[in-house]
Amino acid sequence: VWQDRTIASAKLRLLEYSAFMETQRDRETYKHLFVHIGPSNPGYSDPVLESIDVRQIYDKFSEKKGGLKELYEKGPHNAFFLVKFWADLSSDVEEGSGVFYGVSSQYSGTENVTISVSTKVCSFGKQVVEKVETEYAHLDGGKYMFRIHRSPMCEYMINFIHKLKHLPEKYMMNSVLENFTILQVVSNRETQETLLCIAFVFEVSTSEHGAQYHVYRLVND
């Protein structure tokens, strides 16, 4: 049931994903979520994901070695997804020192493997920065869990968010975001097999309810 309705391949499922900023004020913690994919528990009555032809977005991600095209051709195709985020930039948390910018994510898998999580930020389809993290499996309730907890955001991303937030109009922010993408590739560290590949694209949320998203399967038919 998960495979056609959530971000899940045959071997790995994304359970949660969030990018946030956090600060302490008057001994209280304030957390603002820029983007967030929460836990879900779909049933067979829920609709399956819509599809997008992967060729429509190849140029939005690095087309060099290790880019989306090469990865997709290697497969497996059921591991490839696109997430369109409507990011919430309406934070009233003050910027500056004492603010923590982080990314947390959680996955569950079917195998006791070590995963490598590569996050590539692309500007105009060219990679500008990459973070690679290694995670080990923890057995929990018969599943292998992988948790990246409060991974610090890089300087490039923090500066990017600062600049974006200070643009006066939302259409200007969307114009910048049109050429900003992130590719996350989770692979088996030993075999290099792709377990999950998520292409992120962005707009600014106009909702009062915070960050929103749509998930698509990437197909080639």
Binding site: K126, E203, S205, H209, Q212
Partner: peptide, 25 residues
Amino acid sequence: GSTVEQVPMRKRQLPASFWEEPKLT
């Protein structure tokens, strides 16, 4: 470096939902 002119996302073959921000119910 130079940047290559890309086809705007609005001109690509994408589902209608791609442009519809979900509303919380």
